[in-house]
Computed example of a mutant assay.
Amino acid sequence: MIHVYGIPNCDTVKKARKWLDGQGLEYSFHDYKKEGVDAPNLERWADRAGWDILLNRTGTTFRKLDEADKADIGREKALALMTEHPSMIKRPVAETDDGDRVLVGFAPSEWENAFR
């Protein structure tokens, strides 16, 4: 089973879900804007993909942060910011049941290799 995390109205999440549907792959969807994301998930994703890949620095939420919050970001600070502001997580995040495969963002060729 594939688990997809994101925000339903995000265009990239919509593309990813449409791709999964088109491939006939079953998946669950977790709206982390409404349901939040717990620390163990974020830590696992950061371990697998890298916290710097996971942190969406181009989004509105990050850009609106105080300069002090943006300064000197390391793993712990990034994870704390993403826990507090789930919109700062790059989306979608997709992982397998075992947590072995974690993909951040949507690239059809990567997803094809990971989920086929």
Rank of each mutant, 00 (worst) to 15 (best):
L81K: 08
N9I: 14
D31C: 07
I7K: 06
L54A: 05
W111S: 03
H3K: 12
D66P: 12
I53N: 11
D69T: 07
T83V: 03
V102D: 02
F29E: 01
L20G: 04
Q23N: 11
T61E: 01
L65A: 03
T12A: 00
P40K: 10
E43H: 09
D66I: 00
L65D: 04
S28M: 09
N41R: 14
T83D: 06
A114E: 04
I7M: 11
L79W: 08
D66Q: 13
R91W: 02
L42G: 05
V104I: 10
S109I: 10
A94L: 11
A39T: 13
E112G: 03
F115L: 15
D11S: 15
G105N: 04
V13L: 04
Q23T: 02
H30Y: 11
G24W: 05
R101D: 11
R48S: 15
G50Q: 03
R91A: 04
R75L: 08
H3I: 11
S109W: 06
F62Y: 15
W19L: 02
H30C: 10
D98M: 05
D97M: 07
F29G: 02
A46Y: 03
D66S: 14
D21L: 09
D97A: 15
G59S: 01
K70A: 02
L25G: 03
E84C: 10
C10P: 05
V93N: 00
T60M: 10
A46S: 15
T83F: 09
T96G: 04
H3L: 11
A16C: 15
E112T: 12
D100V: 14
A80N: 11
G74L: 04
I73E: 03
R44P: 06
L25M: 14
L79G: 08
D31Q: 09
D31R: 09
R17V: 09
M82Q: 05
N113M: 12
D69H: 10
P92E: 06
G99Y: 04
A39V: 11
H85A: 10
D47K: 10
K14R: 15
D52E: 15
L81I: 05
A39H: 10
L55P: 07
D52H: 10
G59Q: 02
L54P: 07
Y27Q: 03
D97V: 09
R63L: 11
H3Y: 01
T60D: 04
F115N: 05
L103N: 03
I53D: 12
D72E: 15
P86Q: 04
E26Q: 13
A107H: 13
N41Y: 14
H85V: 10
W111E: 07
K90T: 06
M82D: 03
I2E: 02
T96N: 11
I2S: 01
P8Q: 09
